[in-house]
Design a protein around this nucleic acid. Structure first.
Lengths: 335, 335
DNA sequence: TTGTACGCGTTATCAA
DNA sequence: TTGATAACGCGTACAA
């Protein structure tokens, strides 16, 4: 691990000169010395010490990707194909821009913020924030933040959010179900806030526009914790008799539900139609192939990272970026 | 971002004292001053600057998780449930031990090593290394390394490898197939080195022990690149007629294959039996549920991180750690 | 028990 | 065109 100081000593020159060559400030140094340094550099393959650089420049070249895990979903979070696709998109974009990515998963916002400030992280991508988190974050942290799939959180409103046209997505799908003759359509999710709420609203709107009435019992709540999910599915499958179709809030839940239904002799789509949301490999590899709402998760990650990079360069970015969705009609909704 | 220096100034004492209190060196400082500092600390919530600390101590508290992506599989790598489960296990363990995780994905070993040395990473978890990578890595990097699923790579032999009893896993499954009356059994994979080779060997051994002969044509090669996979599957499905069963090297491939077979009217397990390897959600949610070899991927990540942490504490660790596998008999191998 | 002073590797300022 | 030197924030040996 050779240092600039050491190089300067061996070459009988000052650290400034070496540093200038390293940073390509060609105007500041004569061609001869330039070459001399460059040759030496090639020989010893010098690697800068980022800690020292960070200290001197008060920046870190780190972008933090903080995933807030709901306690009841932690085990699922990292397994969800959604998350890994997202990470893939973000990591690639960040790396290509010469930044580094630090991944932090926690259910404790305070902990996340401590982590971020010790490392003097240059920018932050936040996923899974809700309720009062926003205020605490924006109090502590004064650098660029991009949120992902975050709806109207007080205190985060002045940050850019990269999201999806969730409402339109479920609207289109439920509308499609109605057109195909389904009347009793349920909605399945594990909560009613944020993204899930938006998708629920799209579903309700489609019902209303189709002349159907939404009843509280049309909302099916799934409890994803591993010690509750079986009971939860049992209950949902019992209620399934009352419906022609179920709009699920994610592909994961759709596929999980279909498996549970199949185990109980209820056929999809003959007995009941099921649709998902995400269009990930879970549904693509499923047979019958899952009818679902497509979103480009990797793109979401790329756009989020790109937006943050723009902010880091001092550019303004819009308050909301909504990526489109489209229907992927396959085989789990009866035609 | 308050600094120790600033705190010392405001409290009219030296930085040493403040630093001592922060590090709990209670013997060095009187109870009164201790309390005074502590109170102040709580009020301003001081966060240490890690860059400065790293520089002073020549360590980073960072553990690098480097995933080497084969160029032909990059898009699949991050989507594979295997990787996200692994990341989950590693991240959690590292975080609980007070370390930080830096994730780096690349197909270029040199790039990975540059990254690692700039950050002065304290320890490294390496996944997906092969061939000559090992030598280059161990030349550049003199700190603890733990490899994951790495077989006998020259130059990495003196590092601990956390792996699986891959050979036993496929042996057990193929043996089970034979017991159930299958005779013409193929093996499907995308390469024949490392983990895949070990699993192939287990398969061959089971064939031999069952009195069956292995022919070169029993190896089915799948090409996972998105522009080749369809052709590849077409070819494999054509060959499938010649077999009673196919042992797939992963659940992902097993499920992919079953979907392709189903699309062509070939039924599993009635017409052909399929087994996977991994036991991830892909197979669990599949119907018919996938018969597969179980491995605990999250545990693998945890063990790898734990092993590295031990080495960081100066403990010796064994050269090889092999986690067990066991059969999960479900519905895709005909009884 | 407390304080002073220096080093870690880099960048930046300013003088030569 | 080059070189001294100060700063970044922290830890620590050593002096008081």
């Amino acid at each position: 691990m050779i240092t600039i100081k050491e190089i300067a000593k061996q070459l009988n020159m000052s650290t400034t000169t070496v540093s200038n060559v390293i940073h390509g400030k060609t105007g500041e140094v004569s061609p001869e010395t330039q070459k001399k340094v460059q040759d030496f550099l090639d020989k010893v393959d010098y690697v800068p010490n980022i800690s020292a650089r960070n200290l001197a420049q008060n920046q870190s070249k780190i972008i933090g990707l903080a995933l807030k895990a709901r306690a009841d979903k932690y085990e699922n979070l990292i397994m969800d194909p959604f998350v890994s696709e997202l990470i893939g998109g973000v990591e690639e974009t960040i790396r290509n821009a010469g930044y580094f990515m630090m991944l932090y998963i926690s259910s404790d916002t305070t902990e996340i913020m401590r982590h971020v400030s010790t490392w003097n992280v240059d920018g932050l991508i936040l996923f899974g924030m809700l309720d009062d988190d926003g205020i605490r974050v924006s109090e502590k942290y004064k650098k660029p933040i991009v949120c992902l799939d975050t709806y109207s959180i007080e205190g985060l409103k002045h940050f850019t959010n990269v999201g999806l046209d969730d409402e339109q997505g479920t609207y289109d799908m439920v509308n499609y179900m109605i057109v195909k003759g389904h009347k009793r359509i349920a909605f399945l999710s594990d909560n009613q806030s944020g993204v899930d709420l938006a998708r629920l609203n799209g579903y309700k709107k489609a019902l209303a526009d189709g002349g159907l009435k939404f009843k509280q019992s049309d909302f099916l709540k799934i409890r994803p914790k591993s010690d509750e999910i079986q009971d939860s599915l049992e209950e949902i499958c019992r209620k399934a008799k009352n419906f022609d179709a179920i709009m699920c809030v994610s592909d994961l839940y759709a596929v999980t539900l279909i498996a549970a239904l199949t185990d109980r002799g209820i056929r999809v789509p003959e007995d009941i139609s099921i649709a998902g949301f995400d269009d990930n490999m879970l549904g693509q590899l499923h047979r019958p192939a899952l009818t679902t709402v497509h979103q480009d998760v990797k793109k979401k990650g790329i756009v989020a990272a790109d937006t943050l990079l723009k902010q880091l360069n001092g550019q303004k970015t819009p308050n909301q970026i909504k990526l489109p969705t489209h229907l992927v009609i396959r085989d789990t909704v009866r035609a």
